[in-house]
């Protein structure tokens, strides 16, 4: 187990390094000059521009820039935001909690809904309920995420007026008591989390249904029934325990999807998370902020996958001791 962790840590470090390099290369290959992007509406003289380039280190040769870039990353120094004139890390510190809250809520919705539906379907394959849920999950899966978000806004925000349609808190947030503040945050979270989570729920349900159906076809299910166990025990203990292994893999795979999905959802719902910050930073060629967001995102995804791998090995006795 210890060796496995060490190996996975080393692999993770390599992946993060590759992401850092790729980010560096892609940013500098992308069209648009970072300095000019900051002065979109004003004309500035070449001297001013050169001065900025010098102070941001963009005047050196590419290899020198790359070495400096890696050195800064290793020290955890993401540099200054070109457009916001403050440390890129500050941008992250404000955006990251919002994204984590949104992602965790969406993850909860995806897995709670998906596992329940998939278990019910897998335990009763080809029943009417199974067929109905298959149609529904496929439909939800094929809805574009931004359209779903807009529909939620329209129906539950505009028409019903049940939930606010943007931001994390109301303007009156500061004046509310603690319970009111929590409720306010929750109300703001509902629509973006549902938008981001429902597609995932459909995917989880599809995969988990297949995993359950596969587990049900196994001989040990027959043994469990032959022992006189209740159908509930057969489903929840014998089949589900085995179908959890694919679910753990799915958990690892869903993290990157969640991060990329959150860009759209944060944009639609004006949710001030990493996705929205990334969207704005890319538009302004704010290299340092884009880099910081990419690196934090990559680290989180890699760490999440490592946790999933570890969980898998712990959950499967056949790999646990090797």
């Amino acid at each position: 187990m210890g060796r496995f962790v060490l190996r996975r840590l080393a692999q993770s470090a390599v992946i993060v390094f590759l992401v850092a390099t790729l980010t560096f290369v892609l940013l500098r290959m992308a069209p648009g000059d970072p300095v000019r992007a900051q002065f979109r509406d004003v004309t500035v003289s070449q001297e001013v521009i050169d001065e900025y380039r010098r102070s941001w280190g963009l005047d050196r040769s590419m290899p020198v820039q790359y070495v400096q870039y890696l050195g800064n990353l290793i020290r955890g120094d993401f540099g200054q935001s070109f457009s916001l004139h403050r440390p890129a890390w500050d941008v992250i510190r404000e955006a990251l909690p919002n994204t984590v809250v949104l992602a965790l809520a969406a993850l909860g919705i995806s897995f709670a809904t998906g596992m329940v539906l998939g278990t019910a379907q897998g335990a009763n394959p080809n029943s009417r309920m199974d067929h109905t849920l298959t149609v529904i999950t496929l439909a939800v899966f094929s809805i574009p995420i931004f359209w779903l978000g807009l529909m939620f806004m329209l129906v539950f925000g505009q028409w019903m007026g049940w939930f606010p349609i943007g931001g994390e808190v109301s303007p009156v947030y500061r004046g509310l008591p603690l319970v009111g503040q929590l409720a306010d945050r929750f109300r703001h979270l509902v629509l973006p989390a549902l938008t981001l989570g429902l597609g995932g729920a459909a995917v989880v349900a599809r995969f988990h249904r297949a995993a359950m159906a596969e587990a049900f076809a196994e001989n040990f299910i027959r043994t469990a029934r032959a022992k006189g166990l209740s159908e509930q025990t057969v489903v929840l203990k014998h089949a589900l325990r085995n179908a959890l292994l694919p679910a753990i893999t799915m958990f690892g795979l869903s993290l990157p999807v969640l991060f990329s999905g959150s860009v759209l959802v944060e944009y639609v719902f004006a949710w001030h998370g990493m996705g929205l910050a990334a969207f704005e930073a890319v538009g302004r060629r704010d290299y340092n902020v884009v880099t910081a967001i990419t690196m934090i995102g990559a680290t989180l995804v890699v760490a999440g996958n490592m946790v999933a791998d570890l969980l898998y090995r712990l959950a499967d006795p056949r790999t646990a001791e090797s």
Binding site: E218, F220, R222, H238, R241, N242, L245, A315, P317, R318
Partner: peptide, 10 residues
């Protein structure tokens, strides 16, 4: 088949 008749995770 005893192998497949026992639950591998219990």
């Amino acid at each position: 088949e005893p192998m497949s008749s026992l639950n591998p995770v219990l």
